[in-house]
Design a protein around this nucleic acid. Structure first.
Lengths: 196, 196
DNA sequence: CGCCTGTTTGAACTAGATCAAGTGGCGTGG
DNA sequence: CCACGCCACTTGATCTAGTTCAAACAGGCG
């Protein structure tokens, strides 16, 4: 039977493994975030969660969840809220994959990560990425080389400093701008993705 | 305040409109399917639903939903099931956008549509698409020309017959194969770029 | 110290986007 | 009932962002 998990400590990815063994990274999960909602429907988890660091979770079996939830309206509401957030994150992810340029996806990824780190009180200027370039690539729908080049580009533009998985955010305002405006720029901002 | 809607009759799309006015199609909704889960979190709908045909919905305001749900465990369970299905569809969509070739996406789209038509007892061999090529393109993360070419390709290969929005499924087995295997083939199984 | 794994970098190639005409079905008005 | 114009779709030609293939590079660990 299914259960949902709350990440307590460490970082996780959830992956969807297709018949041919390829894995699509559906999401990354930081402490406080929910994992395993996909099983709400069938009782079967469609995707698997993998710890990216030494980690620690809190398991909440479904039946407990529903009995407790129906008794405590507060919890029920809380649950709905988290579900809604999760749906919202998926929608953003969808939009990123469908419409954004590679460099924009990468900026969006880094920016989103720092936002989430901020909410859990982690430092947001120097961070160690818990996931590999390949994981990021499979999350963003890109080749891992493209992700690597994107990082390099951001570094060359003075937005971040990269040493393997250590990333330092040098210009978070610029990072945010790139995340929302698209084209990685040599200066002026308005440029759109057409017209090289 | 938010509400969820159940499509009763007709077809809908849900779109996410970005600041620059571009719309990303998040999903299509057939009778019996749920619309508006995104607002569960904040109470605000992030995306808007548009009827693609003359249509008919049933609105369920949130507060009713939670009071009724907490009193009827059956409904609560049902709700969870539908939420789970919706999450599952989003995950499939994510996988399609991240990893699949254009032709595969199109086959997947058509196949998925016939599957859903089957579950609501509609004929699955001759169908009229309620959405434009542009909607399909924005759903699949492609240019509309690419969608058009994909349809033509499927027609040339004898899998479907297309007349504008009227589509006839000539070889649903082949369609399903393409949806799972990728490349539209000229008979022999030309290897795709898989190779890990 | 040298291997193994993850990452960066380089160069060539291609799927799909973009730009630009055509085509055809359909409603409108003549 | 037919001509006209509009709009959604198709088709063609070119161009490019990103993939793929391949090789150099780092750094941790036996």
């Amino acid at each position: 039977m299914g259960a949902v998990f709350v990440a307590r400590d460490g970082a996780f990815k959830t992956v969807l493994v297709s018949e041919d063994g390829e894995e699509q990274v559906i999401g990354f999960h930081l402490p406080g975030e929910l994992i395993g909602l996909d099983a709400l429907g069938s009782g079967m988890h469609r995707c698997e969660a993998v710890a990216l660091t030494t980690a620690n979770v809190c398991e909440v079996p479904f039946d407990e969840l529903s009995t407790v939830a129906s008794q405590l309206p507060g919890l029920q509401r809380q649950l709905m809220r988290v579900i809604g957030q999760s749906v919202g994150r998926d929608q953003d992810h969808l939009e990123i994959l469908a419409r954004r340029q590679a460099n924009e996806r990468i900026a969006l990824f880094l920016h989103g990560l720092t936002e989430r780190l901020r909410t859990i009180g982690e430092p947001t200027d120097r961070l160690r990425l818990p996931m590999s370039r390949e994981d990021i690539a499979r999350f963003l729908g890109l080749a891992l080389e493209t992700v690597s080049r994107g990082f390099t580009r951001l570094q060359d533009d003075g937005v971040i400093a990269v040493h393997g998985r250590r990333v330092e955010i040098l210009d978070s305002a610029e990072l945010e701008r790139l995340a929302h405006a698209g084209d990685s720029g040599d200066g002026n901002g308005r440029q759109r993705q057409q017209r090289a």
